[in-house]
Amino acid sequence: MAAAPLPSPSLAMAPAEAAPAVEILGVDKVFADGTRGLTPIDLTVAQGEFVSLIGPSGCGKSTLLSLIANLIQPTDGRLLWWRGGFDKVGQPGRRLSIVFQDATLMPWARVEGNVRLPLDLARMPKDEAAPRVDEALALVGLSSHGRLYPRQLSGGMRMRVSIARALVTEPDMLLMDEPFGALDEFTRNRLDSDLSELWRLRGFTTIFVTHSIYEAVFLSTRIVVMAAQPGRLFREIEIDEPFPRGDAFRTSAKFADYCRELSVALMEASLASGRGRDR
């Protein structure tokens, strides 16, 4: 990383004691064709948490993330976002960013232009935006790549640009929908380590969708396992291990134990899918 990390967010504080970042209260989703995407869900994510959503295909992970991002609206229930832990508001502000699996970069624009896009849309003057773009690129290790085009970058580098674009708005909450799913295992592990360090450095609340047991255990303070048909919360697993986490954690007996526990939970969630209360 380009900057020395700040102290890790306190993991000794239980979510119930920490100020919430988002509260999901009895939220469900029925799509226009009658498909029930989610049965009523209650979930609170505390400020500074790193929560991963994992479960079988079709369990509603991306639907839940889209609801939190305010990209779609719930059929019933409420979502409440908090700013600064004090003022409850009904809509998320500009302090929320989302990263998708596809980097979705503009091929005709240089890296710095891609990162600057949210600030351009907010009509921030370029002289004000420039230092924020430089800082975001430094955070993802791409300070010397600002004048390049996306076609000149590897897949991992393009994803770093996408993350920099999300960070340039200085979000309080970062939503990530399988951002590293299409990358090779080596690149994925490297980006997981970098993301974990960014989270330590910036302290933003993170909600992360993944299909990888190893990735979820490595990154998370808490893992939410979901079941399908209809999508619902099935189990939660707290990863009560200190940060920073590196290769020593990945090869430890505790890591293997967490992975086994999560693997069993996922198997049970898969077996439970289709036996939800709405079927």
Rank of each mutant, 00 (worst) to 15 (best):
A3P: 00
P15I: 02
A16F: 06
A16W: 08
E17Q: 14
A18Y: 02
A19F: 05
P20T: 15
A21C: 13
A21Q: 15
E23W: 07
I24E: 09
V27A: 06
V30Q: 13
V30E: 04
R36H: 13
G37K: 03
L38K: 06
I41S: 14
T44E: 11
V45Q: 04
V45T: 01
V45D: 00
A46M: 11
V51H: 01
I54A: 07
G55I: 04
S57N: 15
S62A: 12
L64K: 01
L65H: 00
L67W: 05
A69T: 00
I72G: 07
Q73Y: 10
P74A: 06
T75E: 05
R78Q: 14
R78V: 08
L79D: 01
L80H: 07
W81A: 04
G84Q: 13
G85Q: 09
K88I: 02
G90A: 13
P92W: 02
R94A: 14
R94L: 05
S97L: 03
I98Q: 00
T104Q: 14
L105W: 04
L105Q: 09
L105N: 12
L105S: 09
M106R: 04
M106Y: 15
P107V: 05
A109V: 00
R110A: 03
R110E: 02
R110G: 07
R110K: 14
E112P: 00
N114D: 09
R116Y: 10
L117F: 15
L117I: 10
L121E: 11
A122K: 06
R123C: 13
D127H: 14
D127E: 15
E128D: 11
P131L: 03
V133E: 07
A136E: 11
L137R: 12
G141L: 13
G141C: 08
G141N: 08
G141F: 09
H145M: 14
R147Y: 11
Y149P: 03
Q152H: 14
L153W: 10
G156P: 13
M157V: 06
R158S: 11
S162Q: 11
I163P: 03
I163Y: 00
A166M: 01
V168A: 11
L174M: 09
D177L: 02
F180W: 03
E185C: 07
T187S: 12
N189R: 13
R190H: 12
R190T: 12
L191S: 08
S193W: 04
S196L: 15
S196H: 09
E197W: 05
W199R: 01
G203S: 09
G203N: 11
T205E: 02
F208W: 00
H211G: 06
H211K: 07
Y214V: 02
E215F: 10
A216H: 05
T221E: 03
I223C: 07
V224Y: 05
V225E: 00
M226E: 10
A227S: 15
A227L: 03
G231A: 09
R232E: 08
R232C: 02
I237F: 03
E238W: 11
E238Y: 12
I239P: 01
I239S: 12
E241A: 10
P244V: 09
P244G: 08
R245V: 04
R245K: 14
R245M: 09
R245L: 10
A248H: 07
A248P: 01
R250H: 11
K254N: 14
K254T: 08
D257A: 15
E261C: 04
L262V: 06
L262H: 03
S263K: 14
M267G: 04
S270L: 06
S270F: 08
S273V: 11
S273I: 10
R275M: 06
G276S: 14
